[in-house]
Computed example of a mutant assay.
Amino acid sequence: MKLATWNVNSLKVRLPQVLDWLGDNPVEALCLQELKLADDSFPLDAFTEIGYRAKWAGQKTYNGVAVITKAECSDVQRNIPDYEDPQQRLLATTLDSPVGAIRVISAYCPNGQAVGSDKYEYKLRWFGALRAWLERELQRYPRLAILGDYNIAPADEDVHDPAKWEGEVLVSEPERSAFRDLIGLGLTDAFRMFEQEEKTFTWWDYRRYAFRRNAGLRIDHVLLSEALRPYCAACVVDRKPRANEQPSDHAPVIATLDWARAPA
Rank of each mutant, 00 (worst) to 15 (best):
G23S: 10
G58I: 03
W21H: 04
R239S: 14
G116T: 06
E72G: 07
P252H: 07
Q59N: 05
E84Q: 14
A260N: 12
A107E: 01
D20P: 00
F42H: 05
W203I: 06
L228G: 06
E157G: 02
R218H: 10
G186H: 07
Y62A: 09
Q196P: 12
P162S: 04
E72S: 14
K55D: 12
A71Y: 03
L257V: 09
A264C: 07
Q87E: 15
G216Q: 01
L11Y: 07
F127E: 01
N111G: 10
R103L: 09
K164H: 11
W203Y: 15
N214G: 02
P81Q: 11
R103C: 13
T202E: 05
F211V: 03
M1N: 09
P16F: 01
H160T: 04
Y120Q: 03
W6N: 01
R242G: 02
A227Q: 12
R176P: 08
L95D: 08
S74E: 11
E195V: 15
L32S: 02
F47Y: 07
L223G: 13
R89T: 08
D249L: 08
R242I: 02
K2N: 15
S172A: 15
F194M: 11
W259K: 06
E157K: 10
A107M: 08
K2R: 15
V76C: 08
I102T: 07
C73H: 03
A234T: 01
K70W: 01
L138T: 13
I80H: 06
V222P: 04
I68E: 00
K123A: 01
K164F: 12
P16T: 08
V104Y: 03
K123D: 10
L90M: 15
E175I: 04
Y150S: 10
R136I: 02
W165N: 04
G216E: 01
L90F: 04
L187K: 12
A178T: 05
E175R: 07
R207D: 05
R14N: 11
Y62M: 06
L187P: 12
K199Q: 14
V159P: 04
G184N: 09
Q77M: 07
F211D: 00
K123N: 09
R143H: 14
P98R: 04
I219R: 14
Y231F: 14
E135W: 05
A243W: 12
Q139F: 06
P230M: 08
Q88M: 11
G128Y: 12
D82C: 10
Q139D: 14
D75V: 02
A163L: 13
A153Q: 00
L32R: 00
A215K: 12
R242D: 04
L182C: 11
R78T: 13
V18L: 09
E197F: 00
D85I: 08
E173Y: 05
R180K: 10
F201P: 01
